[in-house]
Design a protein around this nucleic acid. Sequence first.
DNA 1: GTAGGGTTAG
Length: 497
Amino acid sequence: MFTHHLFKPNSIIKNYVINHLLQHPQSLFTPKRSCNCYTQTPSQEDTIIAELILKNNSKTQLVEHCRRTQWSPDLVDRVLKRLWNHGPKAIEFFKFIDRHPSYAHSGSSFDHVIDICGRLRDYKTMWDLVKEMCKRRIGPTPKTFAIVIERFISAGKSDRAVKTFLAMHEYGCPQDLCSFNTLLDLLCKSKRVEMAYGFFKVFRRRFRADTVSYNVIANGWCLIKKTSKALEVLEEMVERGLEPTVSTYNILLKGFFQASQIKQAWDFFLQMKKRGCEIDVVTYTTVIHGFGVAGEIDKAKKIFNEMIKQGCLPTVPTYNALIGVLCKKDDVENAIVVFEEMVRKGYVPNTTTYNVIIRGLCHRGEMDRALDFMGRMKDDECEPNVQTYNIVIRYFCDTGEIEKALEVFENMCNGECLPNLDTYNVLISAMFVRKKADDLLVAGRLLLEMVERGFTPREFTFNRILNGLLVTGNQGFAKEILRVQSQYGKLPRKFKL
DNA sequence: GTAGGGTTAG
């Protein structure tokens, strides 16, 4: 059956937690209204600057404004965040401020821009910035390397990621257990588990692999649904004298659910309880979500009630799990009941909570109510994010209400949220369904806009739009797109406007 | 940003 020595009753920890909860029920779990007073007060200077940067026509105004601005690392970081989905402009802004006579960039701003360069696959600029950090003696830090490595991995260049890790010390940043674990985690999260495990086996002695290292690898195997491999790794961990933690158990538990091994998941959960392992709010949330996804709503609800009875208060993610599965496998109306209940209890729904509800409503075709919830988000100081907009835009497109999708897109651009690659892909595809010449013009404009913002449209998208424009007699515009495409082909990652 | 629990369509 289950690996027996994985289960060592951890009664000391368990008793400590229970006692703590009984003595200070408020301290750990009482949801608090978030206080925005200190994050918001230094005016919305970042918004103003980001707007000036995005409006091409007011260059002199921008320069003038920047000269008068009292720059701080925090302000620069916030502006960079606002320009997240407008990579080229963000880099330009960073370089512009770098010439400021009395302001010097912080390591954190460097990290942001390095991340953006990595996303744009402009590796030359990325490494130049890393070297510049060396020169200025503000880095690079382990965090900088985590960023670089993650960008290589997500671009499918795992080998370069590993090489980067091995070269860290040449930049004055020695590898340690933390950075080792980070690399393993990044490889695992991108499903390169075999590679991570191979690397782990070679270096585990040198870096003195710890519980975290083993958990990371086990989680990797779970992500690709190989729970038996995960169990093997954990056996090995125990043999080496490392104690499993509550995270270890939670990783396996989630792994069983993800691999649709519902029976094993349930048995494992029972064993955890029986053997006195620590059961925390993450454990309960995992079980609620797991059963819900498997369509066992009643069981999910039962566990939710059980955790409360056990004195383990749900957190916002717990509610998100329950609300999410109610939307998907039960009824949005029931999900909304739970939503209202959580609000009544004083929890503050976060963006995910709203997105889950909004998706549920869209799925049922209740677009008006979905938009109501979006309005409610704003009232709740919980601004809709790209995903929120993408959900609504996608559903408007799917139901053929292209005008409304475009209207939402406009609102998004006028607000403080920039579209991402998904937004453009969804909208551009929608421009082909009505077979209208005007729609193709919009598609063309969207294409140019996304290129300008540093996103990479697929060859297919280019060709589709070109064909469309030629068929509808827009030779002129087609030529313009063709010009962009050819420049784009020659200068893949650094297309300049 | 050293591990585990909420959003991705069919």
